[in-house]
Write a protein that binds this DNA or RNA. Structure first.
Length: 525
RNA sequence: GCCGCAUUCGUCUAGUGGUCCAGGACAACUGCCUCUCACGCAGUAGAUCGCCGGUUCGACUCCGGCAUGCGGUACCA
């Protein structure tokens, strides 16, 4: 019987959402949308000591920025709420009690300090302590204490936890959609705490109860959960919910770009790329971790890049819109091994997505940067009152159209287009040395004359300067044109020079060239 | 230590027993374009498929061992 697809993304609000978590959310989303299913956002905040203010809002905002939407969840509601585990607190006790009553769990009174001491003691003998079928008989719990003593302690208000009682000698098999069957022996598994002394369930209990109550059909989560999956399977069995147990898919981890290991917050700032979707300022330390959005990544590029980090379409297509991803996504094409994050490729993705933007959208990115440099934008030419610090909207778009293909990030806009808006204040000395040879001032003065006498359009300029002057006289094209370029731009970079001249106009061209001749002319040796 | 998962060009990956002397992308390099720098285009190089055995007529693909990496081993998720 095929159930309706219901998946959940269940982060815990302990800080900013890690990019690996974003990918988990994305895969859940793609799977839900592809199957006409429901996408749920559930907040797993059972550890009250790790609560971080703002983290939940951050999660919602980040996923919303990326276009990963939810049908049910803390922020949108739904019929299976509440969607925050702290709000579901009263619900869990009865399930712990049920397990206790059925012999699947037991009370344990060992204090954290006692457990800690035990671990240290064993460690000194080079052994490790695990609360399991071998050790539970020598601990303080309802398995070893007389029933009336257990009752007395509970009534007295002693702290206790509820632990799962793993059956002995049992092979537990978890079927994973990505890895196939994974089998573990119950004798090696520890009796996990299900219910804490503070009255909250642990992740393990809450997760199973909630997934069951919310009728979750598929659990798509990180590989770090694989070792505890047998516990989860056993819990479904213990509750008698095995026939509606969700399918599991454990995603490979995202690794740091160099060396080995999980991608961590530190790597990002050390290697100069974001590990988080949005900027995050730690409320405790005030430390800022940078995000993709603020770095100028486009949401589509981030989604596309993440989708392909651990999954492939089986074809050679690399650029996917969200709709295309939804169509192409397939759990069986998720890879099994961890993926190293590649900064260069993420830049390439962003470049591709930037190129899909219109000139107008580029202009919208550039205009604030112009303002930062004292240049304001007006709608029409007749509104221009100060040519030095004002440009028209149309001019900005024209510049963007010409320069967009060399842009990877919006932040590069000003530095790669500034010479369209400001005359050079200095001339690159290396370029001058290479191009501005003796006699160049004479050539520039000649070009000044030509500019003055010729019709100001691209073809006429080309004929007058390139054909009739440089080529006809067999002058060095590279030297003259590059010197001309240095005079106008300050260095030997940029678009087709005559197009540039046409863009900034005759007056500005003449002004820049005159000034260059005056300034540089003296440098001739 | 114990348990689990993984292992194909520098990186992401294709590959589900013969069609693979292993394909694509990013990066690198070369060339074209060109007054320059980019973009773009074309091409080159780069992987004894972690190692050793086994199964098979045939293995990157199946099995076993080893090595390495990663994950887990909390009253954290």
């Amino acid at each position: 019987m095929e159930r309706k697809v219901r998946v959940r993304f269940a982060p815990s609000p302990t800080g900013p959402l890690h990019i690996g978590g974003v990918r988990t959310a994305l895969y859940n989303y793609l799977f839900a949308r592809q199957n006409g299913g429901t996408m749920i956002l559930r907040i797993e905040d059972t550890d009250q000591t790790r609560f971080v203010p703002g983290a939940e809002d951050y999660i919602v905002e980040a996923l919303s920025w990326l276009g990963i939407g939810f049908d049910e969840g803390v922020h949108v509601g739904g019929n299976y709420g509440p969607y925050r585990q702290s709000d579901r607190k009263p619900l869990y006790r009865q399930y712990a009690d049920q397990l206790l009553a059925d012999g699947w769990a037991y009370y344990a009174f060992d204090t954290p300090q006692a457990l800690d001491a035990k671990r240290k003691e064993l460690e000194a003998q080079k052994k490790t302590f695990q609360y399991d079928c071998n050790t539970r008989t020598s601990m303080e719990n309802s398995l070893t204490l007389p029933p009336d003593e257990v009752k007395r302690r509970i009534e007295r208000g002693d702290n206790f936890v509820v632990r799962f009682k793993f059956p002995e000698h049992l092979e537990i098999t978890v079927h994973d959609l990505i890895r196939g069957d994974v089998t573990m022996n119950s004798d090696l598994l520890d009796d996990k705490v299900l219910f804490k002394s503070d009255g909250m369930p642990t992740y393990h209990l809450a997760n199973i109860v909630d997934d069951h109550l919310m009728e979750v059909s598929h659990v798509i989560r990180g590989e770090e959960w694989l070792p505890s999956a047998p516990l989860h399977v056993m819990l479904y069995r213990a509750f008698g919910w095995e026939d509606t147990m969700p399918h599991f898919a454990h995603l490979p981890l995202l690794l740091k770009p160099e060396g080995n290991g999980k991608l961590s917050k530190r790597d990002g700032d050390r290697l100069g790329f974001p590990v988080f979707p949005l900027d995050w300022r730690d409320p405790q330390t005030g430390e800022l971790s940078s995000g993709y959005r603020e770095r100028g990544y486009l949401p589509g590029a981030v989604v596309n890049m993440l989708a392909l980090l651990g999954w492939n379409p089986g074809t050679e297509q690399e650029i996917f819109s969200m709709d295309e991803l939804i169509k192409a996504f397939d759990i069986s094409h998720i890879s099994k091994s961890g993926a190293k994050f590649n900064v260069e490729k993420s830049k390439w993705f962003n470049h591709e997505y930037m190129q899909m933007l219109s000139d107008k959208q580029f202009a919208d990115y550039l205009i604030p940067q112009l303002a930062d440099h004292g240049i304001s934008v007006v709608e029409t030419p007749d509104q221009l009152t100060n040519r030095g610090s004002q440009v028209t909207n149309q001019y900005v778009e024209q510049v963007c159209a010409m320069m967009k293909n060399r842009i990877n990030f919006p932040s590069e806009l000003w530095e790669t287009t500034s010479y369209f808006f400001e005359a050079p204040t200095e001339y690159n000395s290396a370029d001058l040395k290479k191009r501005w040879k003796p006699g160049m001032t004479t050539h520039m003065n000649k070009i000044l004359q030509i500019l003055d006498s010729v019709t100001f359009d691209h073809d006429s300029l080309h004929k007058a300067i390139l054909d009739d002057y440089i080529v006809a006289n067999q002058f060095n094209m590279g030297q003259i044109m590059n010197s001309f370029r240095i005079a106008l731009i300050g260095k030997t970079v940029g678009p087709d020079l005559l197009t540039f001249v046409m863009t900034i106009g005759k007056d500005e061209t003449v002004r820049r060239l005159r000034r260059a001749v005056e300034t540089i002319g003296e440098l001739e040796s």
